[in-house]
């Protein structure tokens, strides 16, 4: 089955780009295709000028891309520390993994506090932090993050978004899919509207937020002039 057909967009360096669109638009499929989990039959994906179409996860990790999928992505019966260490499987030879883990624990003190606990004992928000910390272990240049806010408390959502903004400040590019489109666009530089596997609109996040058409279709009508569902 063809899911994506006419999905074309760029992600700028050191910017947060959010993909929005209705259910079934193919948002998660975009990520899976970029990360080589699904094959692209045609088209091309380029990263830093290199063709990475249909490259496997290992090569993408080495190139500096990490992918944090939606839902729970930990190894429940391993300790927090061991979960974190597995983020360095694709590390280049000679990388000081222990130092990276120390740095990650300095950045997220919760991980140090609970480093010997089984990962399954963490709360949903803590698990998400662990996943993000694990993804950042190899200093990626591009972070693909799918629905980071799902199932998290508002406080944790804010913390997650803070991390993404912090990444941007350090020159990392972030590509995010987020159900909670309004707050996601709020912290984003660019936005992409995806519908039925096709890019409908791209542009500055602020412009999309204020676009009445986008507002009606995807943002619950809040920023549009008419209530949602009024247009056929």
């Amino acid at each position: 089955m063809t899911i994506l057909n006419g999905a074309s967009f760029c992600v700028r360096r050191a910017a947060i780009t959010t993909i929005i669109g209705p259910n079934g638009a193919g948002k998660s499929t975009v990520f899976k295709t970029i990360f080589g989990l699904l094959r692209a039959r045609t088209g091309q994906i380029r990263f830093d000028g290199n063709d990475i179409t249909n490259a496997g996860p290992r090569r993408l990790l080495e190139a500096g891309i990490c992918y944090v999928p939606q839902g729970r992505n930990i190894f429940p019966e391993l300790s927090v520390r061991h979960n974190l260490e597995l983020g360095a499987v694709a590390a280049k030879r000679g990388l000081d993994v222990a130092a990276r883990i120390e740095a990650a624990m300095d950045r997220f003190p919760m991980l140090r506090r609970k480093s010997n606990n089984q990962a399954s004992t963490l709360s949903g928000g803590e698990q998400k932090l662990l996943e993000i910390a694990r993804g950042l272990l190899l200093d990626p240049k591009l972070v693909l993050i799918d629905e980071p806010s799902i199932g998290l408390s508002p406080l944790m959502v804010r913390e997650t978004f803070d991390i993404l903004q912090d990444l941007r400040a350090r020159g990392v590019s972030v590509l995010m899919v987020e159900q909670n489109a309004k707050s996601a666009l709020g912290i984003s530089d660019d936005g992409i509207v995806l519908e039925l596997g096709r890019t409908r609109m791209t542009g500055a996040a602020a412009a999309l937020l204020n676009d009445p058409k986008v507002g009606q279709l995807f943002l619950g009508g809040a920023s549009g002039a008419e209530p949602a569902g009024a247009t056929p």
């Binding site: 080495e62 992505n73 930990i74 190894f75 429940p76 391993l78 597995l86």
Partner: peptide, 15 residues
């Protein structure tokens, strides 16, 4: 162990 506990995520980490 990671492969046994969560194979989909193990792949994403390059295991």
């Amino acid at each position: 162990q990671a492969t046994a506990q969560n194979p989909a995520v193990a792949v994403l980490l390059g295991i």
